[in-house]
Design a protein around this nucleic acid. Structure first.
Lengths: 248, 248
DNA sequence: GCGCACTGTTAACTTATTGAAATGCCGGAA
DNA sequence: TTCCGGCATTTCAATAAGTTAACAGTGCGC
């Protein structure tokens, strides 16, 4: 359903993020803003926006809320392979492949905008900075994916969960969703377990350890990081893969 | 060092792979072939072609040999996050980001071709099918990366190693490196351990288990898969993420 | 109010995986 | 040939993580 009151500010996270990745021309910004405002949609929590095996014919951009990419095995085991935060893009250019290799689900109520394939191709064809910004977006996504591989393969549970929290905070900060050293943590421990490759029980144990070590407070769906540097150290976290700052 | 005898057939794996991802126009094929033949290079086994933190200013395409992308933690723990096989591209468009988030190393002697950034940009600007093929290549790479995440996060050691072997065979097959049900396995068990997120000891045990169950023979750097369907079942392997066949 | 589902928490126990160390097997260098 | 280093293999004890199950808090529908 189209949103009743299109509001330019709601698409700002996307513009801002792309602009950090590649400075956008004024026209690019205007064109994109316009296209985004036309396709605004809402989804409830826990919905699949697209599923493994589905064909793709549009690009979705997240305006608010948390989503995840995930894959499942036949017997039900599930791995969240990435989160999607406001300003990020679900699947730029994914229509170049025949079908989705993974699913995308909302973890909170979500507002996103959908740009149909033809429209999107017109946009990126019309402006080089826009095309490059979207490519950067997918490249950063790949880099995050690689960091998740080393997280899952080589960090122990404690470091792994700490690393996830560090990453979440650093990805939420640029879109203004971090207040001091706190942010919302709207997902269940089962989701966190699926993101870190742990069992729910062991994830819970690990969260307790993080609490006991004084690094975090996690209560009432709010994560507070008492000492971010200490948490980063514990997690062996180094944020360069997130490409948070514009290169010169 | 440039290769003494440029030979059109040596760049064929790249052309063939891109052509599966997106049918290339005849001109595109010719242009790319020409550019590739100009930049042919060799590297020995165990060399870093590029390291985490390095700036990127060219695109490398693998003509022969095995490489890997890997990341390390400060204390030396290492995770191979992907392999690179003949026909594949190391870092198309990676120059859009400021620095490498990971390293690329050769695991065997390698022949590759290097196309400088400006040249590469000219190529993809001149032909739409070429640009799309390279984009597809990076998208498939992302899909593989996601499959590795579920492999590392949710498969147990036995399934994990089985899955890696399935993937290797399916990725080598299109470039003619699989002979019947056998292929070379030129890497050490330590490399396989780093790719599967296991310790060397446990990887060795797991390989023994795979042998004992009659699924594989691994000897003299040669992997023979006795019953591929059985191995795929054991691995919960489903090859669609590899995008091996051209979509219609 | 009551029951119910979902989530978080904890315990006890089992299993998977790691780590250190020793052994043997090559193949290459001297 | 001998020595040596890299690699595969095995053992054993130690530890990390999974499994099952129970229980408590919370919010929700009725």
């Amino acid at each position: 359903m189209p949103l009743s009151t299109p509001d330019r500010s709601q698409v700002e996270p996307v513009i801002r993020r792309l602009n950090v990745l590649r400075p956008l021309s004024t026209e690019a910004r205007t064109l994109l803003e316009y296209a985004m405002l036309e396709g605004v949609q809402r989804a409830g929590s826990g919905e699949d926006l697209i599923s493994e095996g589905d064909a793709v014919d549009s690009v979705r951009l997240v305006l608010s809320g948390w989503l995840c990419r995930y894959k499942t095995l036949e017997d039900g085991r599930r791995q969240i392979v990435n989160f999607l935060f406001p300003g990020e893009s679900c699947d730029a250019h994914a229509f170049l492949l025949s079908v989705m290799d993974h699913s995308i689900a909302t973890m909170t109520p979500v507002i996103y905008t959908e740009i149909k394939r033809a429209r999107f191709e017109g946009l990126v064809a019309s402006d080089r900075t826009l095309a490059e910004a979207f490519w950067c977006e997918t490249l950063v996504n790949s880099a995050i994916q690689r960091e998740w591989a080393i997280n899952l393969g080589r960090r122990v549970a404690f470091e792994r969960v700490a690393h996830l929290f560090c990453e979440i905070v650093e990805r939420l900060r640029p879109v203004g969703m971090v207040d001091g050293n706190s942010c919302v943590m709207p997902v269940t421990q089962m989701d966190l377990a699926d993101a870190t490759g742990l069992s729910v029980v062991h994830l819970n144990r690990t969260v307790q350890e993080l609490r006991a070590s004084g690094l975090i407070v996690l209560r009432d769906r709010t994560l507070t990081i008492s000492d971010l540097d200490a948490l980063k150290n514990a997690a062996l976290f180094s944020p360069s893969y997130l490409q948070l700052y514009r290169r010169d």
